[in-house]
Each structure stands twice: as C-alpha cells, then as structure tokens.
Write a protein that binds this DNA or RNA. Structure first.
Lengths: 143, 143
DNA sequence: TTAATAGCGGACATTTTTATCCGATATTAA
DNA sequence: TTAATATCGGATAAAAATGTCCGCTATTAA
C-alpha cells in the first residue's frame, strides 16, 4: 500500500508521539531500535519529516527528534503519507493511464473511486494522537 | 496502488476481452500498441497470464493471445492482480510489521481493515466481462 | 575553550522493478 | 519441405527504491 519509507515514517512519528507529551526527545538510535528500522535510512526519512514540519530536531548532545505538543492532535496520517509518498495514492488512474477522468474514464475508474475516497477520508481523519493512545494503553504495538 | 506490471496486465486482459467474443486473437504488437505499453515487457506479463490460465496463446503465423469465451464472465480483477502482484495488497500489515493481527494489532490495524476489505470485495466482484462492456459501448477508454 | 554528542548532507552501494535483446521453438502457409 | 511468423525463455540493462558510509556542522557539558 505504502512505500517502505512511508511505513517507517508513520512508525517513527507514532513512537515520537508517545514520547512527546512532556517535551521529551528521542535520538535516532533509540527511534530505529524501537520501531525496528534501518538507522541510516530512518535518518533520511526523519529529515524529510523535519522539512515538512511534522517533527522537530535539535542537534548536539541531549538533542534528538520530537513533536510539538500543540501539534499532536493536528497531525493526521495524510500529513505523513503526503510528506513521504506525495499524493500518488489517491491521485492518478488505477490503470496508470495519463488521461483518465470523469469525462474520459478508464474501465475501472468508478470501481476505484469509492476505494480511493474511503482511503483518503481515513488518512485525513485519523490523527497520530488518536493512534498513539492505543500504544500508550497497550492495545496496539509497534513491533 | 498496483505495480506497473499489474496495470499492463489489467489493460491487456481488458483489450483481449473486447476482441474475444468470436474467438478472435490479438498479436503482441497489436496489444502493446492498443494499450500503450512497452512491447517486450508486455510479452513477459502475457506469459504470466498464460501460466495463470487467464489468457491462452497460440504460436506461429496467425497466432496470438486470446481469452476463452466461456471464461469471460468468470475472470475477475482479483484473478489478474493475484497472478501478477500476488496477495500482497490485502495481506500483511499496513505499517510493514512482521507480526500484526487481531490479537496483536499495529496502531493502524483497524483503520486499514475496512479499506482492505472494500478493496478485496471490489476486486473479487468486478469481472473483466463487465468492464469490457464499457469499452465496447464507448463509455470507457484504454488510452 | 575543548571534547563529546547527535543531527545534516552528499556520495555511494544494494535490491527490486521495469524494460530490452536475442536466439530457440512451434506453427502455418506456400 | 521451406520460409515466414509469432510466442517462449534466458540473459542483460536501465531506473527507482531501499539502504549504507562518512565527513561536516551545530550544540551541550565539563
């Protein structure tokens, strides 16, 4: 469904969300260990999330990555997916046609529309704050 | 959503479906031109579809690819997707976790379940026969 | 001020996906 | 039987995604 990079991004953000109630930070090594991802690759992805202003970073000793407390309930899955994979998922034709629209639909256009719309709505309405709660209460797990 | 290979497979099968009412065949060159795909790559994909018994092939002059008339309304999108991409789409965790289930769900498990289920149902219930009708009547287009 | 720490950024390596090439094989028609 | 045609199958190549390495810079604490 998503790229590996995007999966790591969601996992990293969720982990940070559980750490970032009291302004705590998590270092790269810690994050990669906790979400079971390749460290160097995860660093690249975190940099993208920093540029997209989803997470913040602090250099030097006792530095690391974190999420601003006031942003916690504003960040949705859509923000993360869009930052890493762009809008490729719910834009463009399901059959890869360059021209495909309501006026000029591919054979599967209508079949895909409903699925896409459901996906879009889910990504836009699911906040990481909400998902992180499941982690904190031990209902869901990151590895 | 799907791999390029899978997109070509669906397009090729749909094109063949429009040609295969009266046992007509279409050659590789014709198919690649009509669905606007790379010829050699399309050949590989057609071979996979032959092995999966979705299309049939005949060698030699006046040979080509076709679909058995009695199979036309039995082939669903799911058959094609499964033949090319396997079951990766609606199997496995949305966050790429090795262990993720009802008992041990990842944070997005339930959010993804509904989307996946919708996709699965759509792929399983949509026949190429039905889609090909739209092509024949000029409602939908392959390029 | 200095040494240690941790993120930044660019180059490089690996793997997977996408795509091409070409000889071999089977089939048909003359 | 021969020549032309069209798929088959293996090797190879290009592109994209995934992943690594290493020196640089900023920051903190001693």
């Amino acid at each position: 469904m998503f790229s590996k990079a995007c999966e790591y991004a969601i996992r990293a953000t969720l982990y940070l969300a559980t750490k970032t109630g009291q302004g705590e930070k998590a270092g790269l090594k810690d994050i990669a260990t906790q979400i079971d991802s390749p460290e160097a690759f995860t660093a690249k992805i975190l940099q993208q999330l920093v540029k997209s202003e989803i997470v913040v970073s602090v250099k030097g000793p006792s530095g690391g990555f974190g999420i601003d407390a006031d942003k916690l309930n504003a960040i949705t899955l859509q923000h993360i997916v869009n930052a890493i994979d762009g809008d490729a998922i719910y834009v463009g034709c399901g059959l890869g046609l360059k021209v495909c629209s309501e006026k000029n639909p591919c054979p599967v256009h209508n079949q895909f529309k409903a699925i896409r719309e459901g996906l879009r709505k889910m990504l836009e309405t699911t906040t990481i704050d909400e998902l992180a709660k499941g982690l904190k209460t031990g209902i869901a797990f990151l590895k």
